[in-house]
Nucleic acid binder design. Structure first.
Length: 119
DNA sequence: CTCGTGACGGGGG
DNA sequence: TCCCCCGCCACGA
């Protein structure tokens, strides 16, 4: 690859772009996969610089399965709404079930879930 | 170069 | 189970 020396941010974005519709990843998981130098904190920082045009930022949630963006970055619960449109269900506590929706690029083929994107 | 910030995560009460 | 505190490291002024 000609551009293996991507920016710190580009690596995060590249990974986020691999998250399929109807699935999510957590900041900590992304940091763990990218490895050295990456922490949930920095991944979160990087994500806030992302553009909706370049990255499906909505598919990144915190370790609790909730939307950290709901606090102030975007109007109210936009992220949750976007995810719900993709088939990700949230409970009354505004958390999605990570056991069902968490995406792992390394075990992508192991998915025994139904086609959430079906539509 | 230095200081403070921030879309996080884990442990204890 | 929820809330608070501390540590983590890239970025911007």
């Amino acid at each position: 690859m000609l551009v293996d020396e991507k920016s710190y941010r580009e690596k995060v974005f590249a990974l986020v772009r691999t998250i399929p519709r109807g699935r999510v990843m957590t900041y900590g998981q992304i940091a763990a996969i990218l490895g050295e130098g990456y922490t949930a904190r920095t991944v979160g920082y990087v994500m806030h610089t992302a553009s909706a045009d370049n990255v499906p930022w909505q598919r990144v949630v915190n370790a609790s399965g909730g939307c950290s963006t709901a606090k102030f970055t975007v109007p109210f619960d936009l992220q949750q709404k976007l995810l719900e449109q993709e088939g990700v269900a949230f409970n009354a506590k505004a958390k999605c079930k990570l056991d069902d929706y968490l995406w792992s690029p390394e075990v992508a083929e192991d998915d025994d879930h139904p086609n959430l994107f079906g539509g």
